[in-house]
Write a protein that binds this DNA or RNA. Structure first.
Length: 158
DNA sequence: CCCTGATTCGC
DNA sequence: GCGAATCAGG
């Protein structure tokens, strides 16, 4: 019985992880099975997840590569990119509630203010990923699109 | 050189 | 549908 490597379970996890911004290689490792990052990428594309998802950091590679080099049958060009700011980034608190002494493992460590300042604080919301809450993780961890804009919004500036 | 995603194409 | 190979790029 040759069962497809892509069981509903794995596809589900793939979607989740991909949307979270995990890299293809990382997902391949997480899903286990002999899956390679190529397999993951291939599946991602077949699922149409890469269309408008996380550009990670690579600049949109428009048309250079095997495609352009070989034939390039006018491939689908990613048209709309509506998202302007990570939603959860907007949910970030305007100041912290934890301190260096009170912060626990499950408290977001995103810093507010100058560490040498009396009012220095850490975010303190529940950790979602790594050391940060969901909103701050989006800003602090690489696979973010508009990092600069996110920080700007967070700072309350325009 | 490590890594990233993107694309193609034989299977 | 699948994924290795290959690509451009950081």
């Amino acid at each position: 019985m040759t069962v497809s490597a892509w069981t509903d379970d794995r596809v589900g996890r793939l979607k989740t992880l991909w949307i979270e911004g995990r890299s293809a290689a990382e997902i391949a490792r997480d899903l286990d099975h002999g899956l390679t990052r190529s397999a993951v990428l291939g599946k991602v594309h077949r699922l149409g997840l890469s269309a408008g998802r996380p550009p990670a950091s690579r600049s949109a590679r428009a048309a250079t590569g095997p495609a352009a080099r070989r034939s390039s049958p006018a491939k689908a060009v990613p048209p709309p990119r509506p998202e302007t700011l990570a939603r959860s980034a907007m949910d970030a608190p305007s100041h912290g509630t934890a301190t260096i002494l009170s912060v626990r493992r499950q408290d977001c460590r995103w810093p507010y203010g100058d560490p040498g300042d009396l009012g220095f604080a850490l975010c303190g919301r529940r950790v979602a990923r790594g050391a940060f809450c969901a909103a701050h993780a989006e800003i602090g961890y690489r696979p973010l699109r508009q990092t600069a804009e996110g920080l700007r919004a967070l700072a309350g500036l325009a």
